[in-house]
Nucleic acid binder design. Structure first.
Lengths: 239, 239
DNA sequence: TAGTGGTCTAGACCACTAG
DNA sequence: TAGTGGTCTAGACCACTAC
């Protein structure tokens, strides 16, 4: 039986309840959820309804399901972070693992643009990282990462020098990045960028303006990357 | 009952059979498919199995389902083509419909690069289009489109001046574009491009190298677009 | 009112994993 | 062998559409 007051389908309600528990930390990253029948009994619905909820969560990379083993909270390993969110690939389509070199970082008041992108009120404090990323030891991009410092406190102390951040956000703060959107454009390298990347000023760079959202729907991070695409290209698929 | 010789799940077999019928033209674009029970009886499976096949086809934009109405072959209207495959949006995220001006077109022997991209043997004939696309009457990009002329014969006679091609491929040839992949990079405008787009040579342009595949898995088209991103940006989402 | 897809249930059996 | 998710079925009822 279910209450007729709630308009959404049952499976959507179950899905929301599971997300709620994930946010509360009921199950940690990598941990197994109870099996379908246990969840079904728990929520007072049939196993098929739980299945539909879990299938949707699996499709959104929030849980991972293995036949014969169980359903697990998706873990943002460095490999997964890179494979999923880092879209620069070699000319032949192959992927390489980037290295990171931190150039600068610290806390400061958010700029108006950052407030807009991070959905912050004027004057809020943010933590920023400026870093150089290389592929096969060749400088590939410079980027500025800005995070809401209330969402990820002490990142400046604990995260220094990290290469992949999304897995750190999850393991350290329980913040799971589940979606990002990007605006791409072609720009000319500034003098500073040209110096870092080893090209002449004005060299065409691919600018990636990315916002990343967490499981709770709040914006976690904004980053602006300026990439050399002489050796590597940005790959995407549309279906 | 089902034959135990086939390893794939039943719903996947049903899905493949439906795709086969779509390729044969059993149901035309925009037409309704038989309802779930009719298809189930037809294929000798249960309605739930047909549903799973149709749900996957709907997710891949191959069919469209409306509660109370039926399941229809997805129609590549100009609007859908643009909304789905044309990724340039205004700075504020809003979409505009581009206009097209054909600069050149014709038949010729494919270049080695085109043979590679279109999976053609050396010396094959292709049809090409070179056109300028504008947004709100402002030149936005120049692109070269190359198609396999055996897959889309007489496109040069019948398609002259068209703005959106994917819906034409479908309505004229029954070729449905279902997937594309793109490689993006930042490049410097050539003299010719600069002239057409109204900028100075060397101006940064976003290059989009796109291949598009049909329902049968064959490559339909390759295009290389070089876009001004001063006013517009390329938008994409990662989940 | 009849026909469609959408949801929900209950139960059977299969395929894979692990001790 | 026991436990998990994956597939498949059968049937009930709901929500929406069109006449």
């Amino acid at each position: 039986m279910h209450a007729p007051t709630e308009a959404r389908p049952l499976y959507a309600q179950v899905k929301a309840l599971i997300i709620q528990r994930l946010l509360q930390g009921t199950w940690r990253p990598g941990e197994a959820l109870p099996n379908e029948f246990q969840l079904a009994a728990d929520f007072g619905v049939s196993q098929g309804t739980v299945r539909k909820a879990l299938d949707e969560l699996a499709q959104e990379n929030i849980v991972v399901r293995y036949q014969g083993k169980g359903t697990f909270v998706a873990e943002h390993t460095p490999h997964r972070s890179l494979f999923h969110f880092f879209r620069l690939v070699d000319r032949d389509g192959s992927r390489h693992t980037p290295q990171s070199q931190w150039l600068d970082c610290g806390r400061r008041t958010a700029t108006p643009l950052e407030c807009e992108r991070l959905d912050l009120t004027e004057g809020a404090e943010v933590f920023f990282i400026r870093r150089l990323r290389s592929l096969s030891d060749v400088p590939a991009l410079v980027e500025t990462i800005v995070v809401n410092s209330s969402l990820l406190p002490d990142l400046d102390r604990e995260g220094r020098g990290l290469n992949t951040l999304y897995d750190f956000y999850q393991s350290r703060y329980g913040v799971m990045v589940v979606k990002s959107s990007e605006f791409l454009s072609a720009v000319a390298a500034t003098k500073e960028e040209a110096g870092i990347l080893g090209v002449t000023p004005g060299h065409p760079l691919l600018q990636i303006d990315r916002s990343a959202w967490g499981l709770d729907g709040r914006i976690v991070e904004w980053r602006l990357s300026r990439c050399l695409t002489d050796r590597f290209r940005y790959f995407t698929e549309l279906m």
